[in-house]
Each structure stands twice: as structure tokens, then as C-alpha cells.
Nucleic acid binder design. Sequence first.
DNA 1: AAGTGGTCTAGACCACCAT
DNA 2: TGGTGGTCTAGACCACTTC
Lengths: 247, 247
Amino acid sequence: MKNQKDKPSYQVLADDIRNKIENGDFLPGSKMPTEAHLRDSYGVSRHTVREALKQIVSAGLVDQIQGSGTYVRRRPNPDGLYSRSIGSMDDLKMWPGTDTEIVQSFETHVDASVAARLNLNYVEVDTAILRRSFEEKPFVLTYHHVSPELGQIFREHGLTDLGAGTVIGAAEPFLKSPIAGVQQQINAIDADEVIGTQIGVPKDTSILLIERLYYDTDGAFIEFTESFFNPRRYAFRMDLQRKGRGS
Amino acid sequence: MKNQKDKPSYQVLADDIRNKIENGDFLPGSKMPTEAHLRDSYGVSRHTVREALKQIVSAGLVDQIQGSGTYVRRRPNPDGLYSRSIGSMDDLKMWPGTDTEIVQSFETHVDASVAARLNLNYVEVDTAILRRSFEEKPFVLTYHHVSPELGQIFREHGLTDLGAGTVIGAAEPFLKSPIAGVQQQINAIDADEVIGTQIGVPKDTSILLIERLYYDTDGAFIEFTESFFNPRRYAFRMDLQRKGRGS
DNA sequence: AAGTGGTCTAGACCACCAT
DNA sequence: TGGTGGTCTAGACCACTTC
């Protein structure tokens, strides 16, 4: 197993298996090599193989059946929705096949409720607005709220160069402590005029709201985002699998 | 470590840690015992300790910081919403603090689109409707769709005795193959008259729709559910944490 | 009975945090 | 520098499926 950058072995293995599934080396509905076989052919321990497979399983690509084997899942893609499976923080950083557009760069304004979410001691926050499109059609509008201090850093260094990346990713080099995790909450609300126009839905129809609160290793909240999704162009997907036999 | 039923050791450990956090034995914001300490005090291997902690982490109860330790998260409860963190299939089977009510038992009717979701070769399906309440207030209405064959089994054995459990849980003893997993998709829609009345929202306001498709180890789809949530009484929550240092 | 994934042990080294 | 979590090895036994 080659030492690819400093990626852990299980990650290299997982990426390789993902590719093999996408390339059709492992066919849908067919049985994957056993864990023992993967262990030998990649020259790693079984534990490492299982770490890798755990990722593939939670991404919904394969099913593991105790006593039987590991099977590549057959799954027709849903109706042209842009649907994503999010099971780890890394998934949040990737938006394959989408384009980003800056609707508004960071500006300071007063918003007590958002400031409270960020645990700030005052009522000023910096907000930027980004819009993401899939096949030329915008499907999500995101408000990025940060402290005025962090917003100032963005104003100095510019926000234009983030391309396929994320705002929090661009911010990380300037943070004292690294991002430790994110809490997210999903809900449904009515679209207002402004948001509806941006994502292509009429006023007062239902849209999906995902709030995310990123925090660093000190427990401080760094960024609060509100993402408004057009439910006809996007769906939030999750795959869960039981392990072993239920009691 | 006692052999509690046939629960795996890491599950017993995880439940114990959960309890200790809820009882205040491990205080919010404080440092948990180290993995080495837990290994010694419970007399298991470190691997087992890590399996247990992995659960606690993904439930959003603690943060693990490399090189520093494991910390109990401080988290004020959100606004009176019934919010759940769902990271595994077991989470789906528990609705602590809620009551279930059968709105309609299984009845056969014709619904081609639902039958297609279940991969049936005909257009008849059996549907039951359940409603769940939190603190006397209904917050979700769920349509349970199964094949007429499975519906017949429910009609023979009754649905009344499921109590805090789930429909799919009650069905499992009668299945040829056990449930392997579930695909779920989250979206936002407008409430219609019937559903709105049941969960306490006006017609045409936004509600949260979660569709779940349960499949067995043969890859056959067993149950398709549509759950309509009152977004003012329920939020779908997830916690994600990065591991180690990002590249 | 043989094969496969699920659980578990007893180590090891490393990257990162605290001091 | 010592402690902590992150990764990894080389085994082992068990539960379950398959033959």
C-alpha cells in the first residue's frame, strides 16, 4: 500500500474501493472480495480493511451481511434531484458537479439573534451570501455568519478564490484553533420573496432549511450557516445499516 | 464486564457511559476518563472502549480531541422542540418520551406509485397510519406502506401491541429475511388539509417529510414510510466531527 | 463443515496537546 | 517530555450463512 501523502491507509483503501465501484470493477449486485481477501491483496490488517469498508457502508454503496459477504448495492439514481449522503465532515466539503456564486461578500450588520447563536458578546455579525447551482439551476442559497473579526480577515484576503471549496475551509488557516465539528439541524419553512427568487421557488412554498454551527476545539462557535434548499432540486439523503443480528 | 443478555461489550459500555452522562456522573464541560482508564476500569481492550466512545461521539454527547482528551459537551436543550440525533438504525427504533396512536390500521388499497417504490408487481398496497405525540402534542403522522401479504399478517396478529416500538420491528419476526438497512430522504413540502389537521399546522404551511425505505438482506423492499413532521415541534439533528487533523 | 462478517484482545507506533 | 487520542498489526473466537 503506497503512502499517499499523509492519508491514513484505510482512507486510501476506501477511496480505491469507491473508485472501483464507480468504474464498474465491482459490479452492482455482485459480491465484493471478502475482508480476508482485501487484507491479503492490499497487504494491510483486517482492522484497516474494516475501517475502510465502514466508510463505504455508511456512504450507502455496499451492504455487509454477516456470514454471507459484502455486496455492491444496486441503486438507480433518484429523479434528477441533486441528492447527497452526508455521514462525515468530509462530505460537507465536497459538492461535486456544482458551481458557486457570491451573491454578497462579507458585510457587517446588526443581528442580535445570530450573534447569540455564535455566542458573541455584542450584536454585530458579518454575513456573506453564496448560491450554488447544479446544471445551471440554482438550488441552494446559504447565509454565512461569522464574527466581525473573522469577517475582517475575509475582507482583507478576499472570498473570490474559494471555487469548489467552502467558506469554513477558506477560513481555517486563519483560526487559532482548528474546526472540531459541526452541529446541524434540518427543518422546513416557507420561502420569502428574496430567497424564493434566488433558488427558483414561488413565495410561501415550502423549502428545506439546514442550519449548521461549526465549532473549534476550544468549543467556540466559529461560523453559523443557514442554507435554504429548493426541495424540487435537492434532497438530503442518509443510509443506515444494522449490524449483526438484532436482539 | 458482565454479560448483559447477548449485548456486545462495547454496547454495554456505551449505554453505561450514556447513563453516567445523563445522571451527571460525568459533568458537562468536564473531561471524561481517558481511554486507557476506561480500559482498565471496565477490564476490556482499548478497541472495545473506542467502539463504545464512537457511538457516544456520533450521538453528539462528547467531543474527542486528539492529544487532549474526551470532553462532555455542554448543550442547552433547544427551544422545546423534540429533536433527535439519528446515526444508526437502533436510533430509529427508539422514541423516548413519546406516545403512539393508531389512526388507521392496515387496509388494502390501490396506489401505483407506492407499489412501485416497494417494487411490487401490482398496484395494491396495505397502508396503516400512526401518529406520535410529545407532551400531549402530536408532532408526526406516519404512513406505513407494506405489501398486501405483510399487511395480512398484521391484520391477523393485530397492530395494537406495539406500544413504544415500531411497525417494522413488529413485522420482523414474520419476515423470511431480516431487515438489513434503510434509505431515508428528507424534504420539505406543503401540508394538505388532512395531514395539517393531524399534526397541528394550518393548510399550506411547510412541513418536513422524511421518506424511509426498509430493505432486507435479499435486497427486497419491505416497508415504505412517509413521515410528516410539524417543524415547530420537531427538528432533525445531526452531529459530525472531524477526526485528527485535516490535511 | 467451511466461509464470512461481528466482536475482542494485547500489543505497537505515531501525531498532537499539554507542561 | 509525558499523556492523549488516531492508526495499525496479528492474532483469536463467535454468530451466522451457505453448502
